[in-house]
Design a protein around this nucleic acid. Structure first.
Lengths: 195, 195
DNA sequence: TTTAAACTACCTAACGGTCGTTAGGAACAT
DNA sequence: ATGTTCCTAACGACCGTTAGGTAGTTTAAA
């Protein structure tokens, strides 16, 4: 139907799978069912297609996370945070978007490094700030005796990356194993630790 | 001097920086000071060069980690483990090898996926087993009251990845921040947590 | 309401460039 | 004499991109 949308979707999957340099406009066009030069009716070139895909993916990802937090508004912090990890795992499995975002955060095409980072940093920052806010709130209202919210938020982001990375190269089973092992340690640690 | 050695070294850096598809034999040869086809006097092709580089990098990396543990044989477990994290950070900054291993663990060229994984899994496994052994030992001789060595080892590996990944995309400063925030939480957590 | 212009979305053909790779030969060491 | 290590030249394949054309749709003036 809408070719532009299909292009964005397909390109996303290819970039996620093969990286920027490894992805081929030929194959993307083929999968969409048009010829390679027709892409240029919708995008200025490969860079443009890539950056548009990335913007889309980030927007979508952010929206999903926001919705997740809203849907668990009334649950205690530990459930919300540990379930977010599980949620991200599911998302990663279900769609290429998380994989794409993850890959491009870690290994952006060197030719587009600055532009990619300008998009990704605010995304990660906003996620960390959101977690920090939750930690502070939980500490303030006594829900959870968090010793140091700043460190707790940073450590949580570290945990997210460590688990998501395991998703990337070993798949769901290993990542679940990490989550299961790491979460109790993390949660116990942020309440016990003194900096 | 030894062209083969220089090729391996240079290729490593290029693969780490640009990925498998993004790296060019042309540029690698140029940097070494020979012409592109001369590479074929030493390697069967790009695949071969890549896999040889990877093997070398893994061997070297493993050797370094072993040496590190030996050099800190008499220190308490928490210092040994937290300093290993700092050590890996330094290594990552100093040489391309860690970056290469990291990148190829996470995003191997899809055409060589199986062969890459066959090399990398044992490496990561052996590291985890080494950590597990240390945890069990510390628990047994009472040095550190670790509740669950298996989970502790898995969580430690998660921590390693989370911190190293931050190395990749935000550099040393952010990674140190993560280490500083996460380590006390981790260490407190593995002693307090019940599974 | 018709008609002409403009625009959109696709096509085929082809461009220049880079890719990894091979052939074949020269210099040199074993 | 054989093998190693480099070279130049060139191959075919694929890359992203552009030119130029053709339908079909929308827009706007007659």
């Amino acid at each position: 139907m809408n070719a532009k949308r299909m292009l964005l979707e397909t390109a996303l999957a290819h970039f996620a799978e093969d990286g920027y340099e490894g992805a081929s406009l030929q194959k993307i066009a083929e999968e969409v069912g048009i010829k390679k030069p027709s892409i240029y009716a919708h995008f200025k070139g490969k860079d443009d297609l890539f950056l548009c895909s990335l913007k889309n993916a980030l927007k979508e990802e952010k929206r999903r996370i926001t919705r997740f937090f809203i849907s668990r508004k009334d649950q205690p912090l530990d459930r919300r945070l540990s379930e977010l990890l599980a949620f991200l795992q599911e998302e990663y499995n279900r769609s290429s978007e998380s994989k794409f975002v993850l890959r491009m955060s870690f290994f952006p095409p060197s030719s587009l490094y600055d532009e990619v980072m300008k998009l990704i940093y605010p995304f990660l920052d906003s996620m960390e700030r959101r977690v920090l806010r939750l930690m502070e709130q939980a500490k303030a209202d006594g829900t959870a005796p968090i010793a140091n919210p700043e460190d707790a938020a940073v450590a949580y982001m570290t945990l997210v990356d460590g688990i998501m990375i395991e998703m990337v190269y070993s798949g769901m089973a290993s990542a679940k194993r990490r989550l299961k092992a790491s979460w109790p340690i993390f949660w116990a640690g942020i309440q016990a630790s003194k900096t």
